[in-house]
Design a binder for these strands. Structure first.
Length: 226
DNA sequence: TGCCAGGCCGGGT
DNA sequence: ACCCGGCATGGC
């Protein structure tokens, strides 16, 4: 089967199983950006606690984040882990937004996707996945998000080479799917749902995965095994 | 009780 | 261009 058909087949099976995910779980574009940074190598349940703290204190805005002391910010986002690093990253994010678009996200949205991505990548704390998450889920741009689940699921199903880079995996999807933000949005959300339930690190749960995405036989690949 | 979670950075080859 | 240690909490 061609790669495009494989990817659409996967998508349809996942969608049929899980239904629409309604991503990203946030109440504003800025909250998406905050969540994208806080969830770096961190369980979302921990991010929720951190965001709840910020909301409770009325600090979930660009202006408030820019005004608050890094020290205090770190204390509030403590549950999300790496809190000292992430506090700096949130500060860098709002500093970038202020300088780049006067903190106006509607204006930010008007720029070309590739240009925006390059600019976001210059910000300390924003790497490929975070940049794509922001582009897709905060700004509605058709930028496919590749995360650990995406890589693991694709590798276990032998859809990509073992040492595929972020860029290669992203290309695999974008070259074989309609370049549509709605599809990219739903697809990544479905992959995360699949990963959380059936494709965890060092756990060969694939065989009990009810989705039967593609053949997943005896040659199980374990990722990131130390 | 150790392993894992929706990465990224900086310094080293 | 890779490779690796560091960053840290909370759930199972």
């Amino acid at each position: 089967m061609g790669k495009a058909r494989t990817l659409m087949s996967m998508y349809k099976k996942l969608y049929a199983h899980f239904g629409p995910r309604h991503w990203w779980p946030a109440k504003s574009a800025f909250e998406v950006m905050v969540g994208a940074i806080l969830t770096q190598n961190t369980a979302w349940s921990n991010v929720e606690k951190a965001i709840a703290n910020l909301r409770r204190e009325g600090l979930l805005s660009q202006k408030k984040i820019s005004q608050i002391k890094t020290r205090k910010l770190a204390a509030l986002i403590r549950p999300s882990g790496f809190y000292n690093e992430k506090a700096k990253k949130l500060k860098e994010l709002v500093r970038f937004l202020a300088g780049f678009c006067g903190s106006n996200l509607r204006k930010l949205r008007q720029h070309d996707t590739a240009y925006l991505r390059k600019e976001f990548l210059r910000v300390h704390g924003i790497g490929p996945e975070t940049a794509d998450s922001i582009l897709l889920y905060a700004l509605g741009k058709a930028s496919f998000v590749v995360d650990a689940y995406t890589k693991r699921i694709c590798m276990r199903h032998k859809l990509i080479p073992e040492h595929a880079t972020y860029h290669q995996i992203q290309e695999f999807f974008t070259d074989n799917l309609l370049k549509d933000a709605k599809i990219f949005n739903e697809y990544h959300a479905l992959i995360v749902e699949t990963g959380k339930n059936y494709c965890k690190k060092n756990k060969p749960l694939c065989k009990i995965c009810p989705l039967r995405l593609v053949k997943c036989g005896k040659n199980m690949v374990y990722l990131n095994k130390k």
